[in-house]
């Protein structure tokens, strides 16, 4: 187990994770980041928009960035091509 931190950058700036979570691997931490982004996007949709302009940085125990998850990469967007502008 190691402690990973998840900093969120989006329209309202940086939301720093001061607490972190103990997780078995970087892969598990990436999954946590993806679930976090999806949870935020679900909230956006309930307000009638989706803001893909954001990312979550996954930091390790020494607070060094290990991975970045762009909001856009946390979901697969389907059907847009067929929708008339």
């Amino acid at each position: 187990m190691a402690r990973y931190f998840f900093n969120v950058f989006n329209g309202s700036g940086l939301v720093e994770d001061e607490e972190g979570q103990d997780l078995p691997s970087l892969s598990a931490a990436r999954d946590v980041a993806i679930e976090g982004v999806r949870s935020i996007l679900r909230d956006d949709i309930s307000y009638g928009f989706i803001d893909f302009a954001g990312r979550v940085e996954v930091l390790g125990p020494d607070r060094r960035a290990l991975a970045t998850i762009a909001f856009r990469d946390a979901v697969e967007v389907r059907g847009l091509a067929g929708v008339p502008g």
């Binding site: 969120v8 607490e19 979570q21 976090g36 979550v56």
Partner: peptide
């Protein structure tokens, strides 16, 4: 409570809880 505990109370994720607390 940790962010994880809060998330499990609220049906959200810890990252989402953290952002919402910031709001």
């Amino acid at each position: 409570l940790t962010q994880v505990d809060l998330a499990e109370c609220l049906g959200l994720t810890p990252i989402h809880v953290n952002r919402t607390l910031r709001e």
